[in-house]
Computed example of a mutant assay.
Amino acid sequence: MTEADRPGVAYKILTREQLDRLLADGSFSGAPVDLADGYIHMSTARQVRGTLDKHFAEQDDLHIAAVDLAALGDAVKWEASRGGALFPHLYAALPLSAVTDHAPVKRDETGKVNLPSH
């Protein structure tokens, strides 16, 4: 992925409790896996389904936050992860001001994830 190919929006999958914390506190420091790894894991639109299927398969009441990457500046690093694909990783707390929209996780009849508008 070249610099020009990187999208301006990434997506963070959150539990209801995590979304509520983000909305109440105005920022989100990360899920347990984020805290353990030292950054907040996010996905591009093409990566969200794989992330949900691999890491959230048995969980209910999940939500997706659309995140404006430009608002996060240099705190976002594109790093190789699953299958060598580059994923956006946030090396800071996620501020509510960078979240452009959020919605419950919903899939269409083919299993494709419906993403929140941004």
Rank of each mutant, 00 (worst) to 15 (best):
87 F>S: 00
96 L>E: 13
108 D>P: 12
36 A>Q: 12
12 K>L: 02
7 P>C: 03
94 L>I: 04
41 H>G: 02
2 T>M: 07
48 V>C: 13
81 S>C: 06
65 A>E: 14
102 H>V: 08
76 V>P: 11
99 V>G: 00
98 A>D: 05
61 D>N: 10
57 A>V: 02
4 A>S: 09
7 P>R: 03
110 T>I: 12
84 G>E: 06
98 A>L: 09
96 L>W: 09
99 V>H: 03
62 L>H: 01
105 V>Y: 08
82 R>Y: 13
114 N>S: 14
2 T>E: 13
37 D>F: 00
53 D>C: 15
42 M>C: 07
15 T>A: 08
90 L>M: 03
60 D>V: 15
26 G>W: 05
5 D>P: 00
40 I>Y: 04
118 H>V: 15
40 I>D: 05
113 V>W: 07
114 N>Q: 11
104 P>V: 09
116 P>M: 03
1 M>Q: 06
51 T>C: 06
84 G>K: 02
102 H>I: 13
79 E>L: 15
68 D>K: 08
97 S>K: 12
18 Q>L: 10
7 P>F: 02
21 R>E: 11
89 H>E: 04
63 H>F: 15
83 G>F: 05
103 A>C: 00
87 F>T: 04
59 Q>W: 14
110 T>S: 13
13 I>D: 00
9 V>A: 02
32 P>M: 07
69 L>H: 02
109 E>K: 07
33 V>S: 06
50 G>A: 10
75 A>W: 02
10 A>K: 10
110 T>E: 12
64 I>D: 14
59 Q>P: 01
21 R>A: 15
51 T>H: 09
52 L>A: 15
65 A>I: 15
73 G>C: 13
56 F>P: 12
84 G>Q: 03
100 T>N: 01
58 E>S: 12
108 D>R: 00
58 E>R: 05
70 A>F: 08
64 I>K: 09
43 S>G: 09
16 R>Y: 10
90 L>A: 05
44 T>W: 00
14 L>W: 04
100 T>F: 08
50 G>V: 13
26 G>L: 00
61 D>Y: 02
72 L>S: 06
37 D>C: 00
2 T>R: 01
82 R>G: 07
54 K>R: 15
58 E>V: 06
78 W>H: 04
66 A>T: 13
23 L>M: 15
90 L>D: 11
12 K>P: 01
33 V>Y: 03
31 A>P: 09
48 V>L: 01
113 V>S: 00
